[in-house]
Design a protein around this nucleic acid. Structure first.
Lengths: 198, 198
DNA sequence: GCACCTCTCTACCATATGGTAGAGAGAAGT
DNA sequence: ACTTCTCTCTACCATATGGTAGAGAGGTGC
């Protein structure tokens, strides 16, 4: 890219701002000010705001996808372990960078090609997880349940909660990082209890 | 209020639009067009857009609060039954009117007094539920877990999923009403499995 | 030196938005 | 009949936003 990687810095700032405040609520001027360049520099690197949104979503989807794939490959055979590995893989970047999964939630609200790109990137991962869980349920290694519900549950929990401390104020709680970590293990225990066979 | 209840119609339309598209993405003009009045009629009934947002959130919080309280009073003594009753109570309006809980999610992202009002109204309900679950866990009638996690899980699931068919596209699924109903019973079974003692 | 390419800037535009000013219609009270 | 109050309207404004036009700075190849 560039010498000073302006494009990269714009992407980083936009990811944080979009994820935390929402795409609609963040103007190009705000992003430009955050990066420390003129607005037109943004429009040099990205043809339009929509273009920037697409790029941010694409990058986010790719990062999450890589993390999930790696977690799956590194995990053992036990389905509960594997599910745990995936949840952890999504939790880690979410805790370090709250905006990342806030974007996923944003994408589910947005319409048009930008959202399609993110969802299009994540959907195969989900589909794969669903088929995997179905198989393990058939083999009796997981309690029978709707795999999509499990996926949706993980998605909703991690996205809406672990991701975004703001959302937790709705239940009267402003968690610290260590509390988030505890929340993660609680969630995993919860999932294990719900999915353990027999 | 008025003869033709213009104020009420504005509130209804704003609730739907805010909940589905998000507060930022809906302009006063759009709401006015939806109701069939001039924008200034909105500003006659509500001093500002922020005022309208506050009114919508306050009404939504009140409705959900009433539904939850009623469900608690009507339920039996078994903690699992009671939790199920509350989830159903929140699910029912959510399915009939997807925007209602979309607003809750919106509120968690908004800042300022408007969001405070909604969250302020919902927080006591959540706190009460948390204390209740703690008590039942102490008595051994619920598996020990972080009650806030359970609350957050229900919140996230119902809010982010049952509420908004859009969000489900993220996991590649566009549910019908009957599928939502099935999803609800799946969620309840999941909760029971996770919370049943021993 | 000179053309060229990359990158960032200042200046400007069209549009949409939240909000104001004020007038007019119609019912109600006197 | 006259005022008053409620309610809705047309016309307008200030601001912010996404986006365009075009120039200038600084390096690179010839």
């Amino acid at each position: 890219m560039a010498r000073t990687d302006t494009r990269g810095r714009i992407l980083e700032a936009a990811t944080d701002l979009f994820g935390v405040r929402g795409v609609d609520a963040v103007s190009l001027d705000v992003i430009a000010a955050e990066v420390g360049v003129a607005k037109q520099t943004l429009l040099y690197w990205f043809a339009s705001k929509d273009d920037l949104v697409q790029a941010v979503l694409a990058q986010t989807a790719a990062q999450l996808g890589v993390a999930i794939e790696a977690a799956i490959r590194a995990s053992g055979d036990d389905p509960l372990d594997r599910i745990e590995a995936v949840v952890k893989a999504v939790f880690r970047p979410a805790v370090r960078r709250p905006a990342l999964l806030g974007l996923v939630r944003e994408a589910s609200r947005l319409s048009g090609p930008a959202a399609e790109r993110l969802n299009g990137a994540l959907r195969p991962l989900v589909e794969r997880g669903v088929r995997y869980m179905e198989g393990e349920m058939d083999r009796g290694l997981l309690r029978r349940a709707d795999p999509r519900l499990v996926a949706a549950l993980c998605y909703a929990t991690v996205t809406g909660i672990a991701t975004e401390p703001e959302a937790l104020r709705a239940v009267g709680w402003q968690p610290t990082t260590s509390e988030l970590r505890r929340l993660r293990s609680e969630l995993l225990a919860f999932l294990r209890a719900a999915l353990a066979p027999g």
